[in-house]
Design a protein around this nucleic acid. Sequence first.
RNA 1: GUGGGUUUAGCUCAGUUGGUUAGAGCGCCGCUCUGUGGAAGCGGAGGCCGGGGGUUCAAAUCCCCUAAUCCACCCCA
Length: 440
Amino acid sequence: MPLQRPKGTQDHLPDGSPKLSRDIQASAFAHVQDVARRVLERSGASFIATPLFEEAELVKRGVGGSTDIVRKEMFTVYYFGDHGGYVLRPEGTASIVRAYLQNGLKQLPAPLKLWTHGPMFRAENVQKLRLRQFHQVDYEVLGSTDPLVDAEAIWLMWEVVRELGLTGVRVKLGSIGDPEDRERYNAYLRGLFGAHADRLSDDSKDRLERNPMRILDSKSAGDQALLAELGVKPMLDFLGEDARAHFGAVQAYLREWGVPFDLDPSIVRGLDYYRRTAWELHHEGIGAKSALGGGGRYDGLAEQLGGAAVPGIGWAFGIERVLGALEAEGVAFAQVDGPLLYLAAMDEANVGLAARLALAGRSHGRVEFAYRAMKPGSVFREADRRRARHAAVIGSDEAARGVLNIKNLGTGETREVPVADLNAFLDDLSQQARGTREQA
RNA sequence: GUGGGUUUAGCUCAGUUGGUUAGAGCGCCGCUCUGUGGAAGCGGAGGCCGGGGGUUCAAAUCCCCUAAUCCACCCCA
């Protein structure tokens, strides 16, 4: 048995590979990233990249010591020496805020919009579209508390999935208030459930201590019966005046822009740094956990990392989950183009000529060549398999006359092109290819 | 961390109550095929039946352990 990839990781494979599903198709990954780039950079976001590993302390303080991510899902990297340890990043926000503080990005015009994509790591048990190395597209805005920034962030996330062609996505929107609001609400929940702790499921007894809001979306039938019986008030009833006004403004903008959303009073962010606006995008058909991604405001995070007070808001979605949703909906992508031209020689003496012409043509488009002499039948078979648009067979006659007989594999027509005109011919082809791609 | 399913060729899968040398389709390679393709025919390569242990005259098949994988719980993207 040959060595295998580590549990919870995936290989991203070329089109045409056996066992290829959408969430491991390299070209599909690139497509999602391209669409996100287009949408986000149109909005003024700049690309940023941070290391794949960070100080463990950054993750502990950023994500929060009470979260599952820190308690049991950290990929810790040890090395010689007495260093406290690095961790492979479990999410992108803490790193980006760290980079903002460390590099003086406050100098750039505020609010600063940043985006990135890349792998994230969480050491947990795998299930459908839940991996140990997964990939996110991430958008962050630093330096503004304006609800308009919140609304635009949600709009952008919606716009990315819409441009990707997904139709079955639902936005669940809530507000978890300011920290003091949440404290009051948690105290209320602890009081309410504490009196009936014996009726809670074991998981929820645990939640009562760590994060009582999690009891609200418990899957246990007993918990849900108790919830209904007690008539639990939603978080939104506990919002302070400012948080309430902020949340109202966010909703008003979204309605004005036609972004459909459902108010979800049970929305709870799993990371400690969130406050106020919180939302998730959901899609049925990607398994038990239907979240494509989520986001929220994190005005206290920069201070928590030891920096100046910098308000922020951001979101991330899982690329694998989005690809899973696209597969579930049967959304088709444009296929990656094959070569414009495939060149092959009929005899060994001209193999070098085919190679030289191909290399010279590459500044004008994708050109491939055969590494050994072939019979004409094989040339076209090989050209087809590579999804080439044209193919030319070079024999001693063509070599002597300095021409190519180029066959259009779509129409079957052959035309003679002088070698001197090859580059102009390829230019025409790549312009045509661009044209048809834009139409599609 | 917990529970269930699965594991036979590159891929999708057969394989009878345990019984000789483990099969098919597709894919791959070659030939038919010296001047214009997608085809067909013929041939070929490719398997420690996930790994280890046990029962048996005999194990892909029965038992135990283990790993990987898929799904679910917790939680998250």
